[in-house]
């Protein structure tokens, strides 16, 4: 009887340990891939058309979803903000509310979440399928480094695209908020813009938002690349890897956002 309980507990513990070791192994392998991508990134700038092509697929093709969702997010922020602010008779502050919320938080974070869903999954599925169909091994046979040829251009494309998409998100969101606040609700236009300009700081708010989006770009792209590289070469393996990309990217972005914000507000 006692032997049975001890056996069960030890099996449970070893299972937890096994999972932890697998996680740590994956973290280490991801860090190694990140280092290799940086080391072999010379190729992606020398033959820039490779990176350009990836910017087209990750950045330009994400434009529509980013712009449309930014527009609606801005409009909803203005509606919700007005609802509360007019109770205190300061509905002109709606511009500040919309702009600060977008520039500081929603711009980088929502863009990163959409980016993980729109571009991250595509990267994971593409690389996973390349691995499944042994294209990566074929490259190695031809003495082409798959990290320099496949990983690095995608990495830099993601890092370049993210801040561009995030600033577009913030700007379009502010325009959406303007559209609801000024013509629809009837907030004074001059007060809307001047209050916004008086309270949004270029360095403390806008530049920090851009820094956040660069960090999220690195994180999202790296997770997508690693999951693709690490996917078991089966149809099921690729599908699991794609799901994991979205889940891990989203959680990482939200966690990193808290860490970055706490740093930025203290400094």
């Amino acid at each position: 009887m006692i032997n049975l309980i001890i056996n069960k507990i030890s099996r449970l513990l070893s299972g937890i340990g096994h999972r932890m070791i697998a996680r740590i192994w994956r973290l280490g392998a991801g860090a190694r891939l990140f280092m290799l991508a940086i080391i072999y990134s010379g190729e992606s700038f020398k033959r820039f058309h490779l990176t350009l092509r990836e910017i087209y697929f990750t950045g330009v093709m994400s434009l529509l979803i980013i712009i449309v969702s930014a527009f609606f997010v801005g409009m909803v922020l203005a509606l919700q903000g007005y609802n509360t602010l007019q109770k205190y008779g300061s509905s002109e502050a709606i511009g500040v509310l919309v702009a600060l919320a977008l520039v500081r938080e929603l711009g980088p974070v929502v863009t990163a979440l959409l980016f993980a869903g729109r571009a991250g999954t595509a990267i994971t599925a593409e690389i996973g399928l390349m691995k499944t169909t042994e294209q990566l091994s074929a490259m190695e046979m031809m003495a082409v480094n798959p990290i320099a040829r496949v990983v690095a251009p995608r990495f830099w494309a993601g890092v370049i695209s993210m801040p561009i998409l995030a600033s577009l998100f913030s700007m379009v969101g502010v325009l959406g908020g303007y559209l609801v606040a000024v013509p629809l609700i009837g907030v004074d236009e001059g007060a809307f813009w001047s209050q916004m300009q008086a309270n949004v700081d270029v360095r403390a708010d806008i530049i920090n938002g851009v820094i956040k989006s660069v960090v999220f770009g690195v994180a999202c792209t790296m997770i997508a690349l690693f999951e693709g590289f690490d996917a078991p070469p089966t149809a099921e393996g690729v599908s699991h890897a794609t799901t994991r990309t979205v889940v891990i990217s989203s959680l990482t972005v939200l966690g990193l956002d808290f860490v970055l914000t706490s740093f930025m507000l203290v400094v």
Binding site: I164, S167, Q197, V200, D205
Partner: peptide
């Protein structure tokens, strides 16, 4: 577009 958005943020939204 990205550069224009950043410029717009700095000029129209921010206090540059």
């Amino acid at each position: 577009l990205g550069a224009a958005a950043l410029l717009g943020l700095a000029m129209k939204v921010g206090n540059l």
